[in-house]
Every structure is written in C-alpha cells, then in structure tokens.
Amino acid sequence: MKKILIGVDDSKFADHAIAYGFELAQKLGAAVGLVHVIQPVPMMEATDTGVGMPIEGVVNYVAPELMDLQQQGSENMIDRVITKYGHGEDISHFTEFGPTAEGIVDCAKKFHADMIVVGTHSRTGLDRLFMGSVAEHVVRYSPVPVIVVPMPKEEEK
C-alpha cells in the first residue's frame, strides 16, 4: 500500500476515519490523499414561458460565486485536517464536484490509490433508505480495497 485516499467532510464520523487513515498511512509508510466532494446546489432561475411571464424553475445552474465559496470552504477544511493529522507525510489533496461517492471513486483512480478510507454514519432502516450510503457506494464501485471506519457507539452522541 503506497497511496491511501481518505474521504474528508466536516463530520465527527469523517474525523474518526481521518485519524484512522493517517495512522494506517504512517504505519505503512504510505502517501496520503485527502478528498472532499462538494455537491453543487442547483439554483432557481427565472425562465421565460414564451408568453412574456417569467416563472421560477430549477435548472442545472450553479452560481460561480457559490462554487468559489464552497471551494474555499473545502480548502480550509483540508488545511485543518493537514494541520491536525499531517506530521511529515506526503499529502495530496483534491476537491471534487458532484455526487460524493462517485467523486471519491473517481479521485481514487486519478490519485492511483491503493486503498480508500471512509467513515460511516452507521445509518440503518428508513434513514439509510432516504439518505443513501456513501460508504456502501464506494465499496461497491471502488477499483481498490476500501476500509469503512465506524464510529464507536459511545462517541456517536
């Protein structure tokens, strides 16, 4: 294992997985890649109905200013992770735009990762049905092994 990709977000679940991923990388002498995926928020835009009356509709439009703010927030988050956990390791970082799980899998290919480390919210039942499972999607479609790091029950609260 020469390269480990770690999924980063602003949750305690991800923070737990990040710590695990950095510890593993240190033990293996592996380079670390950090990836944060931003899901663009579609904006409402007035469209012309053809009869002179504008209507509001959701279109695939994302304001460049919002994307810049999201990019800056992502870079700040990754900087905090590097400051907290990076102790001389070779660290690369990526910000992807799109669905989270697909972004992680695509980044693993670009980074030529040998392994992916992600956290899990441990959702079950209807919550998982409605929210989906990023970790499950990554495991299913990853070209490399995936370690899914659960949060210890006592730390979830």
Results as ranks from 00 to 15, higher is better:
Met44Val: 13
Glu154His: 09
Glu75Ile: 12
Gly103Tyr: 02
Asp15Ser: 06
Val41Lys: 14
Gln72His: 11
Cys107Met: 10
His87Pro: 00
Leu28Asp: 03
Met1Ala: 08
His137Phe: 05
Ile116Phe: 07
Tyr20Met: 10
Ile116His: 10
Glu155Leu: 15
Lys157Val: 11
Gly50Asp: 01
Pro150Tyr: 09
Asp90Trp: 02
Val8Cys: 01
Met1Val: 02
Pro145Trp: 03
Gln72Ser: 10
Lys27Arg: 14
Ser74Ile: 02
Ile6Leu: 09
Ser122Phe: 02
His121Phe: 03
Pro152Val: 12
Ile116Ala: 09
Val139Gln: 08
Ile104Arg: 15
Pro143Leu: 12
Phe97Ile: 13
Gly98Asp: 07
Glu45His: 10
Thr49Val: 06
Val81Leu: 00
Phe97Arg: 15
Phe97Gln: 14
Phe97Pro: 03
Phe130Ala: 04
Val139His: 01
Val32Pro: 06
Leu24Ser: 07
Pro150Ala: 13
Leu34Asn: 05
Asp106His: 12
Gly29Asn: 03
Pro64Trp: 06
Val117Thr: 12
Val32Trp: 08
Phe130Gly: 00
Phe13Gly: 01
Gln72Ala: 15
Glu154Pro: 00
Gly50Tyr: 01
Arg128Glu: 12
Pro152Ala: 06
Glu45Gln: 15
Thr83Ile: 02
Pro152Trp: 12
Asp127Arg: 13
Ala108Ile: 05
Ser92Val: 03
Val118Gly: 02
Leu34Lys: 03
Lys153Asn: 08
Asp90Met: 07
Lys110Arg: 13
Val146Met: 03
Pro150Phe: 05
Met131Pro: 04
Ser11Ile: 09
Met77Gln: 05
Gly57Val: 14
Ile91Phe: 00
Ala108Glu: 06
Ile116Asn: 10
Gly103His: 07
Ala25Asn: 08
Met67Leu: 15
Pro42Trp: 14
Phe111Val: 12
Met151Ile: 14
Ile147Val: 11
Ala30Asp: 10
Ala25Arg: 08
His36Trp: 06
His36Pro: 01
Asp10Ser: 14
Val134Trp: 03
Ile18Leu: 05
Gly132Cys: 11
Ile38Gln: 10
Tyr61Asp: 05
Asp48Asn: 13
His137Tyr: 14
Ile82Cys: 07
Lys84His: 07
Ile82Lys: 15
